[in-house]
Design a protein around this nucleic acid. Structure first.
Lengths: 200, 200
DNA sequence: CTAATAATGTAATATACATTACATTATTAG
DNA sequence: CTAATAATGTAATGTATATTACATTATTAG
């Protein structure tokens, strides 16, 4: 069902995935179009024809990466009726992603645009918004647990969400530093104490 | 006691401090020499004469920043006989620095060289080594607390140090996202539960 | 005062990088 | 087969950025 014109010599989805892995490892500004072009195994005009430019490509990459989080840590939050199990499973899912051998260590949304030159603030803001969204989901989950009666009435969904956000950000940086999966899991077990103490 | 030659029109220490604030905010690669040159209020050759090049300037800046941490969070660790007070004071000191109005939010050592192009890996490694040093100090402090008999015998200095390292990294990123001092303090109080539970 | 010294200002240089111009080639619609 | 379409390869282009060349100026040592 392809339309007229010379066919692409590479698979667009595969190429997008390769681009994602590079941005994931090197961040937005640390990645050059040359990196991506040679990873795909083609030439500049082909990549520009397929993806527009670096900004648009990065936006697509972020969408793709966001699916990873939706399918992992975010889904985990609502897959367990028990708030403790939900938080535990979600944190472990983060650890799994951040230390998987199939992709670069750490989290694209947390590390790909930390220090951008002014002309790329759009990407910092985009990722920041995604982080805010993640926090909102966490907070809602804690709110639900309070209204479920799983947590003591003084438990504060907002500050709990902020605490676990902080912890997950820390996991991302430690993974980037090469800390192993089992070490991150041990840290996670320590962090889980906080919510455990608020269980009824 | 100055030697022959035309005198500098700016104070080298003041200039170094200005450079530090810029690198602190924008990171190594996000900062341009032009940023620094115009902040100092001089011209390129003067800055190069005073500091060598961008790499050397950054190295000096990192040394200067490291003093901030030595005088704050690291000193706090050994200023309190109680391990709980030491950790609490150290974490609060981090929060103070990361959210001070006198400097950019977050931590230069944790955020200034997260995604560097290959030709600047030296700086990533340098900062990574400083982080390792910080962890080592934390770990030694926990070891001491165990031998002091302040912590239960099963307390693990290594995993406790890794946990608090993770948390402090998280604080740095959350501060960069604009989370307020009081919110970070609340998260810190949650994190302190972990060590509190290991007190004898 | 003179020479040596070292910073300054102007203006280049060199390089990396994102992006595009243009001619060419491979495909589909009719 | 022909025209329309769209990707390809080669080779530019433009811009940002780190760094330096060079002539000039301000200072100190003797």
């Amino acid at each position: 069902m392809s339309s007229a014109g010379r066919p692409r010599t590479f698979d667009r989805d595969v190429a997008l995935n390769k681009a994602m892995l590079i941005f994931w490892e090197k961040g937005y500004e640390g990645t050059t179009m040359t990196d991506i072009i040679s990873a795909i195994g083609t030439k500049a005009p082909s990549v520009y024809a397929a993806f527009g430019n670096k900004d648009k490509l990065f936006n697509e990459v972020v969408n793709l990466y966001a699916e990873t989080l939706k399918a992992g840590p975010l889904k985990a939050l609502n897959d367990h009726p028990s708030i403790y199990d939900a938080i535990r499973s979600s944190l472990y899912s983060n650890v799994d992603i951040f230390t998987s051998q199939n992709n670069p260590c750490s989290c694209l949304i947390m590390t790909a645009a930390i220090n951008c030159s002014p002309e790329h603030i759009e990407h910092m803001n985009r990722l920041k918004n995604l982080r805010s969204g993640y926090k909102r989901v966490l907070e809602e989950r804690f709110k639900q647990a309070v209204s479920d009666g799983q947590l003591i009435s003084t438990a504060n969904p907002q500050t709990l969400a902020e605490f676990y956000m902080t912890f997950v950000h820390g996991l991302a940086l430690r993974a980037k530093d090469g800390v192993s999966k089992s070490e991150l899991q041990t840290s996670t077990d320590y962090a889980l104490v906080t919510v455990k103490l608020m269980l009824k």
